[in-house]
Design a protein around this nucleic acid. Structure first.
Lengths: 198, 198
DNA sequence: TATGTATCGATACGAACGTATCAGAAGGGT
DNA sequence: ACCCTTCTGATACGTTCGTATCGATACATA
């Protein structure tokens, strides 16, 4: 078994544990057991616990970034309104996997609140998202989908906040609850930001 | 020293620790030292760690609820737009205390993602906030401050999401950074939700 | 086939955790 | 004065943590 795939399976193990018990439940031994490896193997790959968690965070960031970048807005793709709805709806816990990812995300955010290394990784992702949003909003304005008196940069900031809020609303949703009210919130966000199609 | 004030000082100690190192840094011994008490005293008051954390959460919830309820919207108080801006701006980290509270909140949210007891306390707060928002939005609609084709319930859900998002955006803001972009987000939210005053 | 090297699983260790237990100080009621 | 209840601070215990270390094994190279 090559190194890279083992690192990946460790990251997946951490994600499963974090979704179940939070970052507090992540320890070298537990991760090793969950990944089906010996503790020594995990430890050799990730000398300290911070290495372990940061790698899991980066893996998670890559996954989320990939999810976002799958949705393309532009002339020969989705309209801005469609794309915006797709991005926001994609965050909602439609299945158990999504729900788990929201919980993982919440755990990492909490860690970022007290650990600058984690905060930096997240703010880098933020910067990328901000840039992508600026592009999409520029396109939207060109297409007349944005009310002209809205400041696109401010709307972008609001959207980043909404996205963060959706993550956490999902994270603390009880196990079986459907996210109906979050769908309402997404509807409202799309309706308020885009102009009506009359 | 009476019991109630000691419980309160314990809660404050937990908040200081959680703001500094997250919930992972909270242990019976550390809390006792931070509160200037013996470990036994803390342990007698809160038999288990869960008791400790849940009490700290409830204290935090009360503080936040008090902050919200200080802002009154109505005929002889603020307009809806003013009140909405006040509520959202109040979340922003204007001082170190606010910043600390955002970090504490992030920690509790992450815990709520994996612990139903915590999730319930937060969702109860949510229910109260939802009711208050419904009131305010009803008033706004009566005053013509809401576009008539907006569903007030959906807007309320969006606002709850925005509030959650603001918490976490604040929580992971680096130490000295000014929250300019969050002010932009608040401006955008207020502008989009309330009708223009022409 | 030998040998040097990298990787493996396992164990060891000190620290810190949550919790239980307990001896003594304090204080009010008889 | 005594005793009984309550409260206090401290210590004890078993577990688990992160990390260091180490002999055994696998493998590449000469």
């Amino acid at each position: 078994m090559d190194r890279e795939s083992r690192r990946r399976s460790v990251a997946e193990a951490i994600h499963r544990i974090a979704a179940r018990e939070g970052l507090e439940g992540v320890s070298v031994r537990v991760v090793a057991a969950e990944a089906g490896l010996s503790a020594g193997a995990v430890q050799r790959e990730f000398p300290t616990k911070d290495d372990l968690l940061l790698f899991a965070l980066e893996t998670s960031v890559d996954e989320v970034a990939a999810r976002f970048s799958r949705i393309r807005i532009g002339p020969d793709a989705l309209t801005f309104a469609e794309g915006l709805r797709a991005v926001l709806t994609d965050l909602l816990p439609t299945d158990e996997r999504r729900r788990a990812q929201a919980r993982i995300w919440a755990a990492f955010y909490a860690r970022a609140a007290v650990d600058p290394a984690f905060a930096k990784v997240l703010s880098d992702l933020d910067a990328r998202a901000r840039a992508n949003l600026a592009l999409a909003l520029g396109y939207a304005r060109d297409q007349g989908e944005l009310a002209v008196d809205r400041d696109p940069a401010a709307v972008a900031e609001l959207l980043l906040v909404v996205i963060d809020g959706l993550w956490f609303s999902c994270a603390r949703l009880p196990e079986g609850d459907p996210p109906d009210h979050l769908h309402s919130a997404v509807d409202a966000a799309v309706a308020l930001i885009t102009t009506r199609t009359r």
